[in-house]
Amino acid sequence: MAYSGGPMTEAMYYVLLALMNPNHGYQLMQAVTEVSNGRITMGPGTLYGVLSRMQKDSLISLAEDDGRRKTYRITPSGEQALRTEYTRLKAMIQDGSILEEGDVIE
C-alpha cells in the first residue's frame, strides 16, 4: 500500500527529515530531537510504530540489517512526500501571515 498523501503526522515528518541521512533506531531517536531543535522527543514505541507504517507505505526502506540493528533510509517516494509536506506547511505559514500584519478578519 503506497502513501496516499495528505497531511503527515508530526512524527512522520520528523522521522523522514531525520532519515535524509540513513540511521538506525537509537540514532534516529536522537536525530529527531536534533532536527526538531529539541521540540520532539520520541520513544521507541512511537518510533517503531511510525517506521513500520512508513515501510508499508514505501516511504522508507531497510538499508541494512546486521541482526543487531536495522538501518533505515528514505526512499525517493518518501523524499517526494516529505518535500510535498514541507511545501504544504510553508503555504500554511504564509496563509497565517495575516496574524502578523495585525489585520482583523471580519
Rank of each mutant, 00 (worst) to 15 (best):
G5P: 03
G6D: 06
G6E: 04
T9G: 12
E10V: 12
A11C: 02
A11D: 01
Y13L: 07
Y14Q: 00
Y14V: 05
A18H: 10
M20F: 11
N21L: 14
N21P: 11
P22T: 03
N23P: 09
H24T: 14
H24M: 13
G25Y: 08
Y26L: 12
Q27L: 11
M29L: 01
M29P: 04
Q30W: 12
Q30S: 15
T33K: 09
E34T: 12
G38A: 02
G38R: 03
R39Q: 12
I40T: 08
P44G: 05
L47V: 09
Y48P: 01
G49D: 00
S52H: 03
M54P: 00
M54V: 03
Q55H: 08
D57K: 00
S58H: 04
L59D: 05
L59Q: 05
S61I: 09
S61F: 06
S61G: 05
L62R: 11
A63R: 11
E64K: 09
D66M: 02
R69W: 11
K70S: 10
K70E: 12
T71Q: 08
R73D: 01
I74A: 08
S77H: 09
S77Y: 09
G78A: 00
E79Y: 11
A81H: 05
R83N: 10
Y86Q: 08
L89G: 06
L89K: 08
M92A: 15
M92E: 10
I93V: 10
Q94N: 13
Q94A: 15
G96T: 14
G96R: 14
E100Y: 15
D103T: 10
V104T: 11
V104Y: 15
